[in-house]
Nucleic acid binder design. Structure first.
Lengths: 117, 117
DNA sequence: GATAGATACTTGACTAGTTAATTAAATATC
DNA sequence: GATATTTAATTAACTAGTCAAGTATCTATC
């Protein structure tokens, strides 16, 4: 089995479990993670894009549904009206904590598979 | 920089160069690679799906344009009319060889970046 | 202080996949 | 040998992104 295949299998395991158990993708998980760990928990869309290796456009599209279900909140920046700041909500933090536990379970499971095969 | 970010950057480098220089994605590259290395160079769609970690549906979709531009050819299976076998064309083999050279260049470049940063 | 560029973000049109349903053929069972 | 199940492939509807173009605001320069 080549590296590409291994990577695909791992990605799909993670995305599958996060989706089934918490209703988010791994990208959404990483987005919440970066927001939580940002100074002041506020980030510009463009900085999120850079952290997530997405385009600004991709960030716009991923944030819309996350705002609708209340995982994140928009704030304006008084110094620069072009900027739309993003922060993690209480619901978002709680989901992030639970999803982190799931991720630990997945890693344990995947490492176990390595030893068994 | 975390593992996920590294993986994303590598994937996008590879896909970007294969796309720009040869007009194919990495998935299409791997498809040609598996066809070339199959016994008799004939494969069923379902076996391609398994090798590529895609669904049968994904394979159907990826093969259609590849057949249109002549990289692969369809063959019927006389023993089982459900099956649609796939083989690599001369044009496909030639593209595969050139793309492999590009991939080697990309790896060299990426490894160089590792040493420099 | 007008204007030329740069920056932050959004939107429309597209691509590469997915799942669920469907079709058609092969195989197994009674 | 009729009928049920399984298997191979396709298709419609969807998702998560991309790129290119557009809008709005900010900054620099004359």
């Amino acid at each position: 089995m080549n590296l590409w295949t291994v990577n695909t299998i791992i990605s799909k395991s993670i995305d599958g479990k996060l989706g089934a158990v918490h209703g988010i993708s791994f990208t959404e998980y990483m987005l919440l993670f970066h927001l939580k760990n940002a100074d002041t928990q506020l980030m510009r869309r463009i900085d999120l894009a850079q952290k997530l290796e997405l385009t600004a456009s991709g960030v716009t599209r991923i944030l819309a549904p996350m705002e609708k279900i209340g995982l994140i909140e928009k704030k304006t920046n008084k110094r620069d009206a072009r900027v739309s700041l993003v922060t993690i909500s209480a619901a978002g933090e709680s989901l992030l904590n639970n999803a982190t536990l799931s991720l630990e379970e997945i890693s344990t499971f995947l490492l176990k598979s390595v030893n068994e095969s």
